[in-house]
Design a protein around this nucleic acid. Sequence first.
DNA 1: CAAACAAGCAACTATTTGGTTGCTTAAAAT
DNA 2: ATTTTAAGCAACCAAATAGTTGCTTGTTTG
Lengths: 107, 107
Amino acid sequence: MQNKITKTLKAIADPTRREIFHALVVAACAMPITQVSSQFNMSRQGVTKHLRTLEDAGLVLIQTKGRERFCYANTAPLKEINQWLKFYEKFWDDSLQNLGTYLEGKS
Amino acid sequence: MQNKITKTLKAIADPTRREIFHALVVAACAMPITQVSSQFNMSRQGVTKHLRTLEDAGLVLIQTKGRERFCYANTAPLKEINQWLKFYEKFWDDSLQNLGTYLEGKS
DNA sequence: CAAACAAGCAACTATTTGGTTGCTTAAAAT
DNA sequence: ATTTTAAGCAACCAAATAGTTGCTTGTTTG
C-alpha cells in the first residue's frame, strides 16, 4: 500500500515513536517488549502498536526467543530519507532570496 | 502544540505533500494556489489544505498579491531533519551485526 | 502441576487526517 | 458596472491513528 519512504517518514513523524526508536538505538542491545514499554508512560499495548509501526518500516527488528520478543533498532531505512533530503540540499539558503527576486519583478 | 521537527516530518510524510513541495522547489518561482492545484488530480481546496500544512511547517511561504497568493518553497526546515539523521548515521551498517552478536550470547 | 509472566488479539474510543462540496468575499478584467 | 476569477470559510465525510482495557495463549519457574 504505502511505499517504503512514506512508511519510514510516517514512523518517525510521531514523537513517541522517535523516542522508542532512540531508546533502542542507544541501548545497543536487544530488549524484550515489556522492558521497552517500562520506559514509557503508556500501556504495554500502546508501545507494542508503535513497535509494530516501526517494525513495518524496518526501523525495528524483532526476534522471538521463547516467550519473549527481542526488539532491536535498525537505522538502515533512514538512509533513504537521507537520499531524499540530498536533492533539496542544493536549494538550502537561496529559497528566500529567490522569492524576493521574483516578487520584485512582479511589482 | 507540536514541535518544529514533528511538524516538518509530518508535513513530508504525506506523499501528496512531498509532490507539491517538490513541484514548488523545481519551479524556482512563486506560484499562485490555482496554478499549484492545477497540477494535481485533486480539488483546489484539497491542495490548499496541504499547502497550509506545509506552510505551518515553514516548508512553503505564501505571499498575497492582490487576489492571488503566491506560494514558494523554503527548504530550510529540512536542515533540522538532516541534523536529526546525523546522530543515527553513526549506527548505519552495524545494527544487524550487533543483533546477531547479542542473540548468540543469549543462546 | 500450578503460579507467574510475556505477549498477542480483539473491541472500543476519541482525535486527526485527507478529502469533498457549496457558498462568500474581494480583486481584476471587460 | 457587471462578470469573471482567486481564494477563503464552513460543514461534512470516511478512514486512519493513538491510545485504552479485558481476555487468551503459551512459556517459564517454583
